[in-house]
Design a protein around this nucleic acid. Structure first.
Lengths: 117, 117
DNA sequence: GCCCATAGTGTCGAAAAGGATACCATTGGA
DNA sequence: TCCAATGGTATCCTTTTCGACACTATGGGC
């Protein structure tokens, strides 16, 4: 499930915008990608960074990101299971985009009453 | 309707990413913004650029963009009604972001079989 | 034997987003 | 008189998304 969003595009010019958007859209993907920019994270590490995400959702988003080739998933056959998530090569090329999003948000969302300080 | 997406954020770091995303998310907003970057457009001009959008949807997206202060809406009291849409000041600051999205899409979506040529 | 942790999966249901279609007002032209 | 164009609204329905919650496997600690 999920992943139905970008099955096809009616490609007018500007399509590329939608196409990119469709990859990072989905409530948690942007943040996940953002956190992954700082380095490898395990499943529960990500979960702890996103207080309101459920396991099902997080799993889902991670699977979609993986399917889109933006992140890599490494499973260690250990007894308490361990799975590492990293940005892939392709995922790294998204960094400037994520950063642009972050910068704009920081600069233009004073109404969001956040404390970036 | 609509506009429920970004009523609140559970602001962890990375929140800014989601915040920005929430403004340009919504199936047509990205493209609309993109087209508006080239200059003023009337309602039906936008509609013609997006072959698969319905009036309801387009109206909706435009209203949300307006509510978020990204575009301006100018109504001319003419007999065949005329409404101009433009990027607002704030909207213009989003240009680099939209562009980043477009550039990445053009560079990284060969699978989308489009003909940018 | 029981509970904990990890990293999930499955099912259910509500809500939101999106789409189809029909309708409105005005007025100039045929 | 009737049609066309503009920029919408209103209503209804389907699809997609999101969230709650329960359940699984394995092995260590108590």
């Amino acid at each position: 499930m999920g992943r139905t969003r970008h099955d096809r595009f009616d490609c007018s010019p500007g399509c590329a915008v939608e196409a990119t958007l469709s990859l990072i859209d989905g409530k948690w993907k942007g943040v996940v990608l953002y956190h992954l920019m700082s380095g490898t994270l395990r499943f529960n590490e990500i979960r702890r960074k996103l207080p309101n995400v459920t396991q099902r959702m997080l799993t889902n988003q991670l699977r979609e990101l993986e399917a889109d080739g933006l992140i890599t998933r490494t499973v260690f056959a250990q007894v308490p299971p361990r799975v590492d998530y990293d940005l892939s090569e392709r995922g790294r090329t998204l960094e400037p985009v994520i950063l642009a999003l972050k910068v704009w948000g920081d600069a233009n969302m004073p109404a969001t009453e956040n404390a970036a300080a």
